[in-house]
C-alpha cells in the first residue's frame, strides 16, 4: 500500500503541486546518486555487467544507424556542394557535422530509446513486484546495485558509443565519397582530421558524458518511482524516453552555446 500524495489538500492546484513535488523528488534522487557513488561498497561486477548490456548489445543498432546517417548525409549534401563547385569539401563538411553534432545526438537519441526505456521498465517492474523491497530488507543497498551501477555504465558507455558512431558514420560517408568522387581512404581521413579541432572532440566527449548520465539517471528515476502495477511500468519506460530526449536537446543547445562562446573568444 503506497502513501497517496493526492489525498493531501493541494497548496496551489493538484497539477502544479505534483510538478513541484516531482522536481523536488528528482533533485533528492540526483543528490542521492552523488552521495552513494563515491562510498563503498562498490558494485564493480554489476557496473561491468551493465556496461556490456548498454555498450555491446547496442552495437548492431548503433552501427546500422551510424552507417546510414553517414551515407544519407553525404548524399544529401553533395548536390548543394556540387552546385558551388565544392564537392571536394564533402569529407570536411561531414566530419564537422558528425563529430560536432550528429554523432553525439544520434547515439544519445537511440540510446535514450533503447537503453533508457529498458532501464525504466526493468527497475519499474522490480519496484512493483517488490524486488527492490526484498533487497532493502536483506540489508543490501538497492540504490547502489540498481541505480549507481546503471548510471555509471551509461555515463561510461555513451561516449564510447559516440566515438564508434562517428567512425561508422565517417566510413559510410567514405563509401559514398569514394564511389562518386574517387577519393582514397587516406585522403578522406586526412581531410577529416584537418577539419576537426581539439575543441570539437572535447566538446563531443563532454556532451556524450552528459547525455549518458542523463539517460541513466532519468531511466533509473522513472523506474525507481514507478507505481500502479504494470501500467506504471509502461509509463515509467515511456516517460524515461520522452524526458531523456527532451533533456538531451536542451543540453545540446546549452553546450553549443558554451562551445561557440569558447570558439569565438
Amino acid at each position: 500500500m503506497a502513501e497517496k500524495a493526492d489525498d493531501k489538500k493541494p497548496i496551489l492546484s493538484k497539477k502544479i503541486d505534483k510538478f513541484f513535488t516531482g522536481l523536488a523528488n528528482a533533485w533528492i534522487f540526483f543528490k542521492r546518486f552523488f552521495q552513494e557513488v563515491f562510498f563503498p561498497p562498490y558494485e564493480f561486477k554489476e557496473v561491468i555487467n551493465q556496461c556490456y548490456r548498454i555498450g555491446v548489445e547496442s552495437l548492431p543498432l548503433i552501427s546500422l544507424t551510424g552507417f546510414i546517417v553517414g551515407i544519407v548525409f553525404t548524399n544529401q549534401s553533395r548536390p548543394s556542394l556540387t552546385e558551388f563547385g565544392a564537392a571536394s569539401w564533402l569529407p570536411s563538411l561531414i566530419s564537422i557535422a558528425v563529430v560536432r553534432a550528429m554523432g553525439p545526438l544520434v547515439t544519445a537519441l537511440i540510446a535514450a530509446g533503447k537503453v533508457g526505456s529498458s532501464i525504466g521498465a526493468e527497475i519499474g517492474s522490480m519496484k512493483v513486484t517488490e524486488q527492490i523491497d526484498a533487497m532493502e530488507v536483506s540489508a543490501t543497498n538497492p540504490f547502489k546495485f540498481l541505480v549507481v551501477s546503471r548510471v555509471l555504465a551509461t555515463t561510461f558507455m555513451i561516449p564510447l558509443l559516440v566515438m564508434y558512431t562517428d567512425f561508422v558514420a565517417l566510413m559510410g560517408s567514405f563509401l559514398s565519397v569514394n564511389k562518386n568522387e574517387m577519393v582514397s581512404l587516406s585522403t578522406f581521413f586526412v581531410q577529416v582530421f584537418e577539419s576537426i579541432t581539439f575543441l570539437d572532440i572535447t566538446s563531443s566527449v563532454f556532451k556524450s558524458i552528459l547525455f549518458g548520465f542523463t539517460i541513466g539517471i532519468v531511466g533509473c528515476y522513472k523506474g525507481y518511482n514507478s507505481s500502479k502495477g504494470t501500467e506504471g511500468v509502461g509509463k515509467a519506460a515511456n516517460s524515461a524516453v520522452v524526458i531523456s530526449m527532451f533533456l538531451i536537446f536542451i543540453e545540446e543547445l546549452l553546450v553549443l552555446q558554451i562551445v561557440n562562446a569558447i570558439r569565438s573568444a
Binding site: E122, E130, Q131, D133, A134, E136, V137
Partner: peptide, 20 residues
C-alpha cells in the same frame, strides 16, 4: 536498521525473486 534487518527474514507475497 540494517543490522536489525539481518535478524529478520521477510518472505514476500509474490516471492520477489530477482528475475534477472
Amino acid at each position: 536498521l540494517n543490522a536489525l534487518r539481518l535478524k529478520i527474514g521477510f518472505s514476500f507475497q509474490a516471492s520477489a525473486l530477482y528475475d534477472s
